[in-house]
């Protein structure tokens, strides 16, 4: 199979996944117990006429297949419906919150992958020694810790007890900054704890994957071949063991995106970080179904897209893929 055919196949798979999610997403919010309109309006004294009018307005009086077609049509126009709570188009609300999440998740993910790789390689190199056992133990503990709880501990220690960092939010509301530098430093101080929490929570997972991957690679025959060339151990790690061990990490990072999103929801909730995760939490508490539906679709599409990107990257990194 050549590269283009492979990518086309992966693309089709991604599209099918998104389509299944669409169907799922559409019907999920229509099978919920009770009349969706009543849930939406939450006003038991609303008149029958007004109810019918709203039903017609939302197209709920049409047969389900027509509604589904309308739903798809709306989606193509970027219309995800309107939030009941914010009384604004869902897509606008989501887009407003994307940058905050990207800053938090992006920084945290990059740092945790980077450190995770280093820790994983060191631990694999020293396998069987005390460093390995202690390192692996810490990784497993971090991996077993709920992200939100770890975040709360961070707040309690650094913000409440030591008072060296703010307890939450992205910036202080209604404060005038004396200079751009001042504003930047304040933002950095607000960013520090959430990113630290996010990073520490995910380092464990990446380090364990990397450790096992490096150990597996070190047992491959081509490692002995490389050693028979007389290259140094550092070169062996740099040129053979680490690059080859990184391959499974590429797909793991994409698969882990589900966990990353879970982490974002928890960390943003604990730190009142104005991103998509916090938005999801408030949407849940308000039972804001159109917003929930939109968020769910948006997040799923992002993950599917990221997985597709990982597949492209993988086929570029590993020449064997085109064959299979």
């Amino acid at each position: 199979m050549n590269n283009r055919k492979y990518l086309l196949k992966k693309f089709m798979q991604a599209m099918i996944t998104i389509f299944i999610v669409l169907i799922f997403n559409y019907f999920l919010f229509r099978v919920m117990p009770g009349d969706p309109i009543r849930v939406l309006i939450r006003n038991p004294r609303i008149s029958v006429d007004a109810l019918a009018e709203i039903r017609a307005q939302f197209g709920l009086d049409l047969p389900w297949y027509t509604q589904f077609i309308y739903y798809l049509k709306d989606l193509l126009h970027g219309n995800l419906g309107s939030s009941f709570y914010y009384r604004e188009p869902v897509l606008n609300i989501i887009m407003e919150r994307v940058p905050a999440t990207l800053i938090l998740v992006g920084t945290g993910t990059i740092i945790s992958i980077f450190l995770g790789i280093i820790i994983g390689v060191v631990v694999a190199w020293k396998r069987g020694t005390k460093i390995d056992i202690i390192g692996l133990g810490i990784c497993l503990i971090l991996y077993s810790t709920p992200a939100f709880w770890f975040g709360i501990l961070m707040v309690m220690f650094f913000a409440v007890y030591l008072r060296v960092f703010p307890t939450g939010l992205m910036s202080l509301p209604g404060v005038a900054y004396s200079s751009l530098l001042d504003q930047f430093m304040t933002s950095l101080r607000h960013l520090f704890l959430p990113v630290l929490t996010f990073t520490l929570i995910y380092i464990g997972g990446y380090a364990i994957i990397m450790r096992n991957s490096v150990i597996e690679v070190l047992n491959e025959d081509y490692i002995i071949t490389a050693r028979a060339k007389g290259i140094s151990y550092i070169q062996l790690l740099k040129r053979h063991a680490v690059p080859n061990a990184l391959l499974p990490l590429v797909s793991m990072v994409a698969i882990n995106l589900g966990f990353v999103i879970a982490g974002a929801i928890q960390v943003e909730t604990v730190f009142s970080w104005p991103g998509l995760g916090r938005l999801m939490y408030t949407a849940l508490l308000n039972r804001d179904y159109p917003l929930l539906q939109g968020l769910f679709l948006f997040l799923t599409t992002c993950v599917v897209g990221a997985n597709f990107c990982a597949d492209i990257l993988y086929s570029y990194l590993d020449p064997r893929v085109k064959l299979s």
Partner: peptide
């Protein structure tokens, strides 16, 4: 390699596949 070298069985994974 400079004075003594070895030829492994090349069938499986004796060469780095990537």
């Amino acid at each position: 390699m400079k004075e003594i070298s070895i030829i492994f069985q090349g069938a499986m994974n004796a060469l780095n596949p990537v």
